[in-house]
Design a protein around this nucleic acid. Structure first.
Lengths: 295, 295
DNA sequence: CCAACCCATACGTTTTCGGTATGCCAATGG
DNA sequence: CCATTGGCATACCGAAAACGTATGGGTTGG
């Protein structure tokens, strides 16, 4: 049972004539006639009644016609769907993001994405700092919008921006009166710390900053998210050093101040499995770059 | 886009391996590998990711797989449906019948038909004497159960039985006291007549009977159905000569009497267009013969 | 009775398909 | 570190299928 035969059959059935159908199919009439007869032999029943004025479907032919044209449409649609998925016009993209970036980025990123790939099922999931690697590796998200970037041999990273580190304190803190805070003033104050990337305390941008300025801040607490950190700061548990974009969504009573003489920043990156070749990743990257550029 | 390629594709996708699929398809591995690559070239996108441990569908491949297997099923189903229709296991049969036969035949014929062809859509329509030919010719019924048979060059007739002609009268008629009525006793009495077959009064079995016995009965009325005739007989408008099977469904107050010395009968026939080749016609004929035989 | 029309058949050419032999690559194991 | 194994890809050849051209045969209409 060959799809070409079905195509020919449908053409003849619609044209009610071998000759007309052959013309429409851009082929000679005899081979088409042969193919129709072969199809009839394969089915084991006549599909057409041959009259002197063309061909007419038998009832068996009518029964076949309905499904044959449906099958043809399905096959064509399947090919088109595969092409659409391959080109990124359709498909599914599961986007992971870290909550720090949610307020600053998602409101602009999501509409931009939907505009860029209208046929794609988008799916968003918040990632925690401690599980983001696993979520990429087990493919429960396809791309991750991260800050800072993930380092892992199986994971590809594209840096798309950076956010300056800022000091976070309660508004009633004496430091809040300064427009920018000298690093030295942090000496000895308790710090609300976030989990270091890659389980390596030395790799943390904050740790590097403090180390470079020879400032020691005892770690009062370790929390999972920047927002938790800000809550503890507000409660007077200590200070935190966080990316500037966390300002959006910061609770009332929290102020952000730049650190004087410290231009340190923390990378914003898009990360994905090296073996994910979905074209949607490129599209996502473009959108994310565009949105993060004007942060 | 060839159905065989799709079949191969589905096999490889399910086996997750060219070699395994080739084995299942009873062919060598290299040609299968070639076909898969040709399909990918045709689609214009890779459908599988080649790993060291077999093949794995890409997302484009998954998109294709769903529709490809559906298309395969549809094509197979179409072939099977065509075969089923051609063999008479499925299809549609529109049965016309004349009301005289309805009470005597349909209660046995319909269950018999449904048993014989369980997959067939049956459809029944009463035929009037004046339109039964047209209903066959315009194909609004496929077969007709007729009494008497239709004569027409385009219509094929199979005689399946006969019914003796009987005299019908009101129970209070003086003739009703006889167990059989001599033809001579009909002389001059008014007759409720039915439309002659083929618009030809001479072809009527009743007319032939009367002519042969040299009996003249003035026509009091001409009606469409035997039941109309019996109603008029009951009303005292005259006598009627009808097939014996009309007794079923005759109104109270009507009696049937055989005509002495007249073995005349009227044919029961199955009629269909000569160019209708549905195998269901044969089946219908068998059922009708069986039912009419024990009338 | 001839011309026109339409489908069927015949035959040679070309394309495509399937089988065998073999190569390449990665993972595995001694 | 090399040999082996397992799996897919490539090359080549013979077989099968499809296509085109030429032609036959039946019916319709002038």
């Amino acid at each position: 049972m060959d799809l070409r035969r079905l195509r020919y059959f449908v053409a003849v059935a619609e044209a009610r004539s071998v000759g007309k159908a052959a013309e429409r199919l851009r082929m000679a009439q005899p081979p088409l006639s042969v193919q129709i007869r072969k199809l009839e032999a394969e089915i084991g029943a006549p599909l057409f009644r041959r009259g002197t004025r063309g061909m007419d479907l038998t009832e068996a032919g009518q029964a076949l016609l309905a499904r044959a044209s449906e099958a043809l449409a399905l096959a064509a649609d399947g090919a088109e769907a595969a092409r659409a998925v391959a080109s990124g016009r359709r498909g599914r993209l599961s986007v992971g993001y870290m909550f720090v970036l949610a307020n600053a980025v998602l409101p602009r990123l999501i509409p931009e994405l939907r505009r860029s790939v209208p046929g794609v099922d988008l799916d968003f999931a918040e990632l925690s700092a401690s599980t983001r690697e696993a979520r990429l590796l087990d493919r429960s998200v396809t791309v991750a919008l991260c800050m800072p970037a993930i380092h892992h041999p199986e994971i590809q990273v594209a840096r798309i921006g950076a956010q300056p580190l800022m000091l976070v304190m309660p508004i009633r803190s004496p430091l809040a009166r300064l427009t920018s805070v000298p690093m030295a003033r942090l000496q000895g104050r308790p710090l609300i710390a976030l989990p270091p990337p890659d389980q390596d305390p030395a790799s943390s941008a904050v740790a590097a900053l403090l180390r470079r300025h020879q400032v020691v801040m005892p770690i009062a607490s370790r929390v999972e998210t920047v927002h938790s950190a800000m809550s503890l700061v507000l409660a007077g548990e200590g200070l935190a050093i966080v990316p500037a974009c966390a300002k959006l969504g910061a609770p009332r009573g929290i102020v952000f101040r730049p650190l004087r003489d410290a231009a340190d920043s923390i990378d914003v990156a898009v990360c994905w499995r090296r073996d994910s070749h979905s074209p949607l990743i490129r599209t996502f990257l473009k959108c994310a770059e565009k949105v993060v550029a004007r942060l």
